[in-house]
Simulated assay, not measured.
Amino acid sequence: MENTEFTVNFGVKEIQKIIPHRYPFLLIDKVTYMEPGKKAIAYKNVTMNEYFFQGHFPEEPVMPGVLIIEALAQAGAVAILSQENFKGKIAFFGGINKAKFRKKVLPGDTLRLEVEIVKIKGPAGIGNAVAYVDDKKVAEAEIMFMIGDKN
Rank of each mutant, 00 (worst) to 15 (best):
E70P: 05
A99P: 03
E114L: 01
A40W: 11
L72Q: 03
L111A: 01
M48N: 03
N97H: 11
G127S: 04
G65I: 10
Q16V: 03
F52V: 09
L72D: 06
P107N: 05
I126T: 01
D109T: 06
K30Y: 13
V78G: 01
D29F: 13
I15G: 01
D29Q: 09
D135W: 01
K89V: 04
P61G: 09
H21S: 09
I68V: 15
L72S: 09
V138E: 00
L113A: 01
D109A: 07
I68D: 07
L72T: 03
G76K: 09
P123K: 11
S82A: 12
V138H: 05
N49Y: 05
I69T: 10
P107D: 08
E70F: 08
L106E: 07
P24D: 04
A73P: 11
F93G: 05
V115T: 05
K44W: 10
L106V: 11
E70L: 10
G125T: 00
A139T: 11
F86L: 02
I18F: 08
I15K: 02
A71R: 00
P61K: 10
K104F: 12
K136V: 14
K104W: 13
A131Q: 05
M34C: 15
G11K: 09
A71H: 06
E59Q: 12
F92R: 03
K30M: 07
Y23A: 11
P64Q: 14
A131I: 14
E35Q: 14
A40E: 04
F101L: 15
A71E: 04
K38E: 12
V115P: 12
I28K: 00
F86D: 00
G122A: 03
K38Y: 13
G88S: 03
